[in-house]
Simulated scan of single mutants.
Amino acid sequence: MTTEPNAVVLDGSSLKALAHPLRVSLLGALRRFGPATATQLGQRLGISSGSASYHLRQLEKAGLVTDDVSRGNARDRWWRAAHRVTELRGEDMDPADADAIDEYLRSVAASYTLVLQQTVNERATMPPDWRDAMDISDYLLRLTPDEAKTLAVRLHAVVREFRYDVPENRAPEDAERVTVVLQILPQPQGALEDGVTEDDPS
């Protein structure tokens, strides 16, 4: 799969740094809202500035956040995300990192859920054009693993045809930030709850 522009591909060190829901939230906030101090991030996420500072330093050690040298002073340290996109390539990871991958994905899933809930809650106050543009859809397909990978590649390619939310990309005046979440969720019969299969008539 092609690496996204300004992306970091997780290795064992950076994966372990992100295997914590608060760190995923901190990195996501910096990417979504731009540079901020630990105090500002703490207020946004409902945590103490000390806690925010500690977790930001762990992200810094992994190369995921860095100082914003264009801001701040001796009293206030400003942080920014070092990359716009995070990529996880499970097939390239050490099997010993399996638990960290699962913890990271749980944190990501929680952050996606929060964004979805916030967007739905704010839908009533959106301009009509944006209410009409919003879409939440799901499709139940029956695919092989190779077909699922092909689907992911094609969907990523479609998203790349559009304008990334980066400063160097000039956008029309009526453009707003849009979050696109891609989820391809295998659901093998053995993983279904209570042992019920799709062929069970009950």
Rank of each mutant, 00 (worst) to 15 (best):
W79A: 08
S53P: 07
A109R: 08
A82S: 11
T39N: 03
R32W: 08
H55M: 02
S107K: 04
L30D: 05
M93V: 10
E103A: 05
L88P: 07
A100M: 12
V24T: 02
R44Q: 07
D102P: 11
L56P: 03
D94P: 02
D99N: 06
L64T: 03
A74H: 12
M93T: 09
S49R: 08
G72Q: 01
V85P: 04
A36T: 09
D92P: 03
Y112T: 15
R57D: 14
L59Q: 10
D94Y: 00
A74W: 14
F33L: 07
E91F: 05
D94N: 08
R31H: 04
A52M: 08
M93D: 04
L27W: 05
L26Q: 03
R75H: 15
Y54Q: 15
K61I: 15
G50V: 14
Q43Y: 04
L30V: 10
I101D: 12
G90L: 10
Y54E: 11
L105Q: 15
Y54H: 15
A109M: 08
I101Q: 09
L88Q: 07
A96I: 07
R23F: 00
S111Q: 02
S107Q: 01
Q40L: 12
L105C: 05
G90S: 06
L88D: 04
Y54S: 13
V65K: 00
F33P: 12
Y104C: 01
R23T: 06
A74Q: 15
L59Y: 06
V69S: 14
G50P: 08
A96S: 11
T86E: 10
H55K: 07
T37M: 04
A109C: 13
R106E: 04
A62K: 00
A29D: 02
L26I: 00
D99P: 14
L27H: 09
D94Q: 07
R31L: 10
